[in-house]
Write a protein that binds this DNA or RNA. Structure first.
Lengths: 366, 366
DNA sequence: AGGAACGTTGACAGCGCTACCAGCAACGAC
DNA sequence: GTCGTTGCTGGTAGCGCTGTCAACGTTCCT
């Protein structure tokens, strides 16, 4: 076969075009916008490409078209289960599309985020997914100046850069506390670790609910900047008990902490929920099979990632969503650990997936 | 400023060269191999680049140089904690290097893996990290023909494609069973989910250890292809109990299953370890704080990812490791759930990080 | 019948960078 | 003094693809 090849031995578009008997540019169009070709040429190019095993050279395409087909994703952690669910959604949505994901880890540092953002933007990504709404002023300016669609994920708030998908951590925490009030609890502790902005907002929600009920005391709050873990949950709970031995419930900023609290209760032979109720956050899988089963606030992490990437890709392709801000809501999943009735599948308290959400206090439950 | 700019408004290498008063090619060299320049020109180019805020165009570089600075990573799951640890190691090691990570999820399908491999290879990655040693014949051929360094991770075996880092799941399972024998257990069940090749090898290890002791029975093994979860652990254990009510220990193929078994024991009021001992696999963080604390086989996942990426980058840069196959070993962390002495921090059984490893049976413990 | 409108195709000219090779000066060996 | 050698620099020629625009044939309208 005297077909001329590139040094690297790879098939080029020109060879496909030659075999199909069309010009290179027509072959090029086939890969970008097949509808623009007549059916005859379309099938010819298609079979030529298949026969030769043609794979487009992305670098050449990016150079010629002045844009890449890369979606940049900035998340604060790779360890956290929460983000692996979100990521899975993002990857699932990107699969089958022509976009590839470029992931970077900010390690919960907004300065690091700013640095990575600058790096990403320099490569002209097709779109960007960033975590949260607490960027530096500089980052914010770069995002606003970026000429690609952007989705902020994990939470919602005012002034989206572009699109936004998440839920209100504040409202979710309030709903969790409302549920505990509803079950007759009054002296409710808060246990939190890492204290990133979203955890902070959960704390704010807890605090406001407690204040509304005239029950807030600073001593009920135990937090640390240390990364979260099950073991840490036990340790923080131990601190809490030392300060306030007579608490009747604990709201944990995440499920790992809740599991740690549960184990610590077992270690201390504290009956759950009879002596102390436990509520977690995120509703990881194990919450439903712990003994007792653990109440948690369910968040739609996979869906969040998947929808974010889908929205982004649609926007890149020019189909902007009619709703740029999506509230995915949450749901308080009541289980044994907080049920005074000791029933397994109690009613659920939902966060309305709507714009104006002042959920929570007992009366507004469904 | 009459400097000519690209349409996109971005600074090009030519502008940097002009400002520095050198030719573009000299400026180019500055970014790839600064030592080749005279000190005078080096500093001139450096300050010009900084002044203009120059960022190289990766697409153009890739096109011109016929290679990319992308490391492809193929892993079977994004959900599994095990892989998020490995990934974190990979990302940590790649940070600061000039290589970026391109991640793809094979979803435990070797056909999918083959497809993704073809896609990756077409883009001429600088290096590749693939999971496991069970590729399709086709994949294997592609890997061997690839002209970039490759690291296989998660396990070790004969005939590495190139480099390899992991440990023997077979030996690790044997060591876990040896530990249970050592504690006086005889009727040991096996609980496994998903049954990917590595879980299969753990089962093989279990089976061989049991056979060696003349204790193997097929009824002791409960497995499913379903993805793993804590809840599933409870369900599989329930099945196992139905078949063999008088087992005295359970070896779980991973820690989630072990936690599920623990919860199920609690639900059925089976005393752990008095009635049934539990051993998990991976030693996730929560194992140490469960009640009772759970014995597990510790594996160095983060280190595995980090070392894999480091070795790969070194190899790309031409410094091949003297040891292409690295056995990271494992360690049986004995905790309350399998300790007849009910002691918390019992002795640990280590897997030698050596080539020839026939660990395990009670006598060879340290 | 003439012309506009549309759908389809191709020629040309780069995108920004680097591989390759040539050129030049400075230096040492014989 | 001549020749090679080394160290640095620059010119040329693409890498493989796509944006732009012009040109073509066909259809439809007036």
């Amino acid at each position: 076969m005297g077909r001329k090849r590139t040094k690297s031995g790879k098939i080029r578009l020109a060879e496909v075009a030659e075999l199909a008997g069309v010009s290179p540019i027509t072959a090029s169009r086939f890969f970008r916008n097949p509808e623009a070709l007549s059916v005859a040429k379309r099938t010819r190019v298609e079979s030529a490409a298949k026969e030769l095993g043609y794979v487009p050279n992305l670098a050449a395409r990016a150079l010629a078209s002045q844009r890449t087909e890369v979606i940049g994703v900035l998340i604060p952690s790779l360890t956290n289960n929460v983000f692996s669910d979100v990521l899975r959604g993002i990857y699932d949505a990107s699969e089958g599309s022509r976009y590839s994901i470029q992931l970077s880890n900010t390690r919960y540092s907004i300065l690091q985020e700013e640095r990575l953002l600058r790096l990403f933007l320099a490569q002209k990504p097709a779109g960007l997914i960033v975590t949260g709404i607490d960027q530096t002023t500089e980052s914010r300016a770069m995002l606003e100046a970026a000429d690609c669609p952007i989705v902020q994920i994990m939470e919602i708030g005012p002034n989206p850069v572009d699109m936004m998908i998440g839920f209100s951590h504040y409202d979710a925490a309030r709903a969790a506390i409302a549920h505990l009030f509803d079950q007759g609890h009054r002296k409710i502790g808060f246990v939190g670790a890492r204290m990133d902005p979203r955890v902070q907002r959960r704390l704010d929600g807890y605090q406001s609910a407690m204040k509304d009920a005239g029950l807030f005391e600073q001593r009920l709050v135990v937090t640390t900047a240390t990364p979260t873990s099950v073991t840490l949950g036990g340790a923080l709970f131990t601190d809490l008990l030392a300060r306030e031995p007579d608490i009747d419930a604990v709201f944990c900023a995440n499920d790992d902490l809740a599991l740690g609290v549960l184990f610590e209760c077992r270690r201390r032979e504290i009956a759950v929920p009879e002596q102390i109720a436990i509520v977690g956050f995120n509703d990881l899988e194990f919450m439903a099979s712990a003994v007792p089963t653990l109440t948690s606030v369910r968040t739609n992490r996979y869906e969040m990632g998947k929808t974010a990437a889908t929205m982004l890709i649609e926007a890149i392709d020019g189909r902007r969503p009619e709703q740029p801000v999506l509230d995915l809501g949450f749901k308080v999943i009541e289980r044994q650990s907080s049920s005074s009735r000791r029933s397994d599948n109690g009613p659920a308290v939902s966060g309305a997936a709507a714009a104006n959400k002042m959920i929570a206090l007992p009366s507004s439950r469904d």
